[in-house]
């Protein structure tokens, strides 16, 4: 923005938005009390902004598709199986993997707030946090799926999983046709964030 912008005549225009000031006040007070380490905040932000994301979950899905022993471990205890790949939650949550089949399509929501498998998918997208999705995913899942361009066969049941602070879900999408013998790296590239929430499908093999 140019520095001679007329907004600068109004001193209020120099102020950050109200919630930003409230966060600053909290950070200042908690730092003065020795309750937080400001440097740790930067590390957390950097981790979630740059290092943790759907690429983690995609690795889990690709391995589940190609390694039967890992799939069995994932079914048995997804928290431990993912921790074994270095993807661990810090909020004490249990992870459950739900597998799509020709008969059942799984879809995940958090009707309470926005619980989400952070270590595997990062920070949820805006729509996952919106009232529109949170309210309608349970009530009208097929209509929501249609808005995402997903049209399921009549005979496929939609099962909606409501996340909580204690339990987070990862959808294992159906493996695309024609990917037999593919390396896990190539398979992971077909696994989108939305496919692991259940609002999408894995990409077709090209």
């Amino acid at each position: 923005m140019p520095h001679d912008h007329s907004d600068h005549d109004d001193p209020q225009s120099l102020l950050p938005p109200d919630p930003a000031l409230r966060v600053k006040a909290l950070e200042t007070l908690l730092t003065r009390k020795g309750l937080i380490d400001p440097a740790a905040l930067d590390v957390i932000i950097d981790t979630y902004a740059h290092k943790v994301g759907p690429q983690n979950g995609a690795q889990v899905v690709a391995r589940a598709w190609s390694d039967p022993a890992f799939l069995a471990a994932l079914r048995e205890n997804a928290t431990a199986a993912c921790a074994g790949m270095g993807f661990e939650g810090r909020q004490g949550e249990h992870l459950v993997a739900v597998e799509n089949t020709p008969r059942t399509h799984n879809m995940v929501v958090c009707t309470l707030c926005s619980c989400y498998p952070w270590p595997l998918l990062g920070i949820p997208p805006g729509w996952y946090k919106s009232d529109a999705y949170r309210a309608r995913a349970v009530r009208a899942p097929r209509a929501v799926l249609a808005e995402f361009g997903v049209h399921l066969p009549e005979g496929q049941t939609v099962r909606v999983w409501d996340s909580t602070a204690e339990i987070r879900y990862l959808v294992i999408p159906q493996r695309p046709e024609g990917t037999e013998g593919w390396e896990t790296g190539a398979l992971a590239a077909l696994v989108t964030r939305d496919a692991m929430i259940g609002t999408g499908l894995a990409k077709a093999a090209t």
């Binding site: 950050p16 919630p19 930003a20 966060v23 600053k24 950070e27 905040l41 932000i45 979630y48 920070i123």
Partner: peptide, 8 residues
């Protein structure tokens, strides 16, 4: 501030 509130 979204990031700060989250990190806090």
């Amino acid at each position: 501030w979204h990031a700060q509130a989250f990190a806090l």
